[in-house]
């Protein structure tokens, strides 16, 4: 599905994006990914773990950029539009499926079909809020599920998630993770919960300081190794 070879990424201070292009040219940027090579196959469910600052989000955004058009992204930054309702935020996932005129009319007067679909989707995600509620009135966990619903509503074959359940309780997390895994052919997800990553995904890769340190496809790994990784990182 995707192969990356000797990837170097730089974090550019002036923009929020990670740029893979101007390697070593900008003085204001710091390198976040070092010589990373990775192949992800069709149908794989991959969890990315690693201590904070390891370059997980940068890698994820790079993958999303390379998979443009095939993948749905559920970013840590959510990118919800505060002035719009839950319904419209979720509907944003479907913008590409409709003509712009349809989308504009829907902004003023929601279409029945979409309302039904989104109601069902929200129920599935245990989001029991009225659809017309503005998202700035929601709690952190509720907002996260709206962002998740939007990504699901894109109905792509690949799901890319950056800690999409960080604000949810463990039980709900595992229920929703099940939904996400069931609805997508391939999943690449940064996970906070190491145990869940080990149990629910086919493959786990770990990053540390911008380098790939563990890959369950290459070697068998266990929880201990990972815990150790996090401890050394915390000391350093």
């Amino acid at each position: 599905m995707i192969t990356i070879d000797n990837l170097n990424l730089h974090y550019d201070k002036t923009s929020s994006y990670n740029t893979g292009k101007n390697i070593g040219k900008k003085k204001a940027s710091t390198q976040v990914i070092f010589d990373l090579s990775l192949t992800i196959n069709e149908g794989e469910k991959v969890a990315i773990i690693g201590p904070s600052g390891a370059g997980k989000s940068s890698l994820l955004h790079h993958l999303y950029g390379s998979l443009q058009g095939r993948a749905a992204l559920c970013s840590q930054r959510q990118g919800l539009v505060d002035n719009l309702s839950i319904y419209h935020n979720v509907f944003m996932g479907a913008l590409a499926r409709h003509h712009w005129l349809y989308n504009l009319i829907n902004l003023i007067k929601p279409f029945k079909q979409n309302l039904n679909d989104i109601t069902a989707l929200c129920q599935q995600l245990e989001l029991d809020q009225p659809l017309e509620k503005k998202v700035d009135k929601l709690s952190g966990g509720q907002r996260q599920r709206v962002a998740l619903a939007r990504a699901l509503y894109q109905q792509q074959e690949i799901f890319i998630g950056d800690e999409p359940f960080s604000a949810l309780d463990p039980l709900m997390t595992s229920r929703l993770l099940e939904t996400v895994l069931a609805q997508h052919n391939s999943v690449i997800m940064v996970m906070h919960d190491r145990e869940l990553a080990m149990t629910a995904f086919d493959r786990v890769i770990a990053l540390d300081k911008g380098r790939l340190v563990l890959d369950s496809k290459q070697q068998s790994i266990n929880l201990q190794q990972i815990t150790q990784l996090f401890q050394t990182s915390a000391v350093a």
């Binding site: 058009g69 959510q78 002035n83 419209h88 590409a96 409709h98 712009w100 504009l104 902004l107």
Partner: peptide, 29 residues
């Protein structure tokens, strides 16, 4: 307005839809 909502919108969507939902809706008030 922030560019973040644009990140999560499918890039195949047309520019008018992306712009109204992702940018203008933010600053409508």
């Amino acid at each position: 307005s922030s560019d973040r909502p644009l990140e999560s919108i499918d890039s195949r969507a047309d520019i008018i839809s992306r712009y109204t939902y992702g940018k203008i809706a933010q600053v409508l008030p």
